[in-house]
């Protein structure tokens, strides 16, 4: 997928609820339509990012896993 990443958040190692809390904080400072890349290792963040995007209306463009690191691309609504 060809998207421009406005910001990357390295949240590897952080446990619930910090990946979501820190992402929501960061996305507040971004413009609508911008994309944030989030890297996390908390397995709970996989269902949580889906739920959070559902609740907030932000778009989960992509989620992948590579060597224990989850990568989420979220477009701000």
């Amino acid at each position: 997928m060809n998207v421009t990443i406005a910001r990357t958040l390295d949240l590897k190692g952080f446990s619930c609820p910090l990946p979501i809390v820190k992402t929501s904080k960061a996305i507040k400072e971004m413009a609508s339509g911008e994309v944030v890349e989030v890297l996390a290792t908390d397995p709970g963040s996989v269902p949580d990012f889906t739920a959070w995007c559902r609740a907030t209306g932000n778009e989960l463009l992509e989620q992948t896993r590579e060597e224990g690191v989850f990568r989420f691309l979220v477009r701000k609504r």
Binding site: P47, T50, A51, R54, L60, Q63, T64
Partner: peptide
């Protein structure tokens, strides 16, 4: 790299956001 399809199933089972 692998796509996580189980999450898509979860997404469809979640309630609509309430909001507002």
């Amino acid at each position: 790299m692998e796509e996580m399809t189980a999450v898509d199933e979860l997404a469809s089972s979640l309630p609509e956001p309430v909001g507002g």
